[in-house]
Amino acid sequence: MTTVNVNGVALGVESFGDDDAPLVLLAGGTTMLSWPDALCERLAAGGRRVVRYDLRDSGESTTADPEAPAYTLRDLAADAAALAGALGGGPAHLAGIGVGGMVAQVAVLEHPAAFSALTLAGTRPVAPGPPDADLPDHDQATMGRMFARPMPDWGDREAVAEFAAAGAEILGDDPDAARATAARIWDRTPGTAPPVQMANQMGLVFSRLDCAPRWRERLPGIEVPTLVVHGRRNRFFPVGNGEAIAREIPGARLLVLDEAATAIPGAAAGEVAAAMLKLG
């Protein structure tokens, strides 16, 4: 792992595969560990240079004030384009998961020359907050259970890992995988201050971003090959969100993972990698 400086910030990155191979850039949601190791390795084995990275205020990237971020969604999109340029090798295949998928949509719309393909995993076509009337919202019973829990002691690695595992079980994800990932995220988080930990573990910084203007109406203008991946059991962004994105981006392919929720399971890494590799 290392950092790359773009747009006045340092972005934490990790690379897999041959440096001279076509680039697949994976935007974290919010940390790079949202993208499972197995998927990165499968993409690299398929002849790609895979670089996953942390969004601002997470992981090894510049951390300032997650409670009052002085940047916008459009700045995060510009980071993706600048990082693709800094890494070199021509236009990149950009992929975003969760809130990283919002970054990826805006990045391809606003910086089309930087990208050759787009993958959107477990995301939706509108900003945090109430969705459009035709889009399914978070499952309210699930959200009630998630946010009724007391916060852990953010200075206790094991408590944070157990908190993540319990949340994964509520969401329908693998609690063992979530526990292991949360411990790795904790190890990479710069300090135990609750706002910083929550930005890394829960992505709550995203709810404080300025995400204007809307971009959903611009999706038909995306011209690069696009793959939309969504878990059938996703209760946070229900599958209707992925279906809407796939309808609105011309020629997009929808891959629904019947046994997945918000995370990409290790067992699905091969299927997702194969679909991504077909985009180029």
Rank of each mutant, 00 (worst) to 15 (best):
T226C: 12
R235D: 00
L171Y: 03
G191V: 11
I264L: 09
G155E: 06
V6T: 04
R42P: 01
I249P: 02
L257N: 04
G242P: 13
G191M: 13
G167I: 04
G122D: 03
G88Q: 10
V256G: 04
A177N: 05
P36T: 04
F236C: 04
A107I: 10
R74P: 00
P22Y: 07
G12D: 04
A141P: 06
C211T: 06
G155C: 10
T2N: 13
E169R: 14
P190E: 12
A183W: 14
D187I: 10
V13Y: 15
L43I: 06
L43W: 07
L25D: 01
S207V: 05
L257T: 02
F16Y: 14
T119G: 03
A38M: 11
D210L: 08
A268I: 02
A104D: 00
E14K: 15
W186C: 14
L76I: 10
W186A: 11
S116R: 15
G251W: 13
E162H: 12
H230T: 03
A260N: 05
H230Q: 10
R52F: 07
G12F: 09
E14H: 15
A183F: 11
A180Y: 09
L254R: 03
D187G: 10
A95S: 11
L219I: 06
N200S: 06
I170L: 13
L39T: 00
I222G: 07
L39A: 00
T2K: 13
G203C: 09
A161K: 13
P220L: 05
R216K: 08
R218H: 09
P22T: 04
A82M: 13
S61T: 08
C40V: 02
A161P: 09
A84E: 06
G98W: 09
G59S: 09
V6G: 09
L120H: 08
P128I: 08
I185T: 06
I170H: 08
A21L: 11
E67C: 04
G17H: 08
L33H: 15
S207R: 15
A10V: 00
T72M: 08
G85K: 15
A107R: 04
P36L: 03
A44Y: 08
L55T: 07
A246Q: 10
A199H: 14
W154C: 01
F237H: 13
T62Y: 06
V13H: 15
A81S: 15
A274L: 05
R179L: 02
A165V: 03
G167T: 09
P66F: 05
A246Y: 07
M276R: 03
V224Y: 13
A180W: 10
L254E: 00
G203V: 14
D137Q: 15
T30V: 13
R247E: 07
R145C: 02
G242K: 08
L43S: 08
M32Y: 12
L227N: 01
A263S: 10
M1S: 11
L118Q: 02
A263V: 13
A92D: 01
A267C: 03
R235N: 00
G85M: 14
G89S: 07
S116Y: 13
D75E: 12
T2W: 08
G280W: 06
R208D: 03
E14Y: 11
A212I: 07
P194A: 02
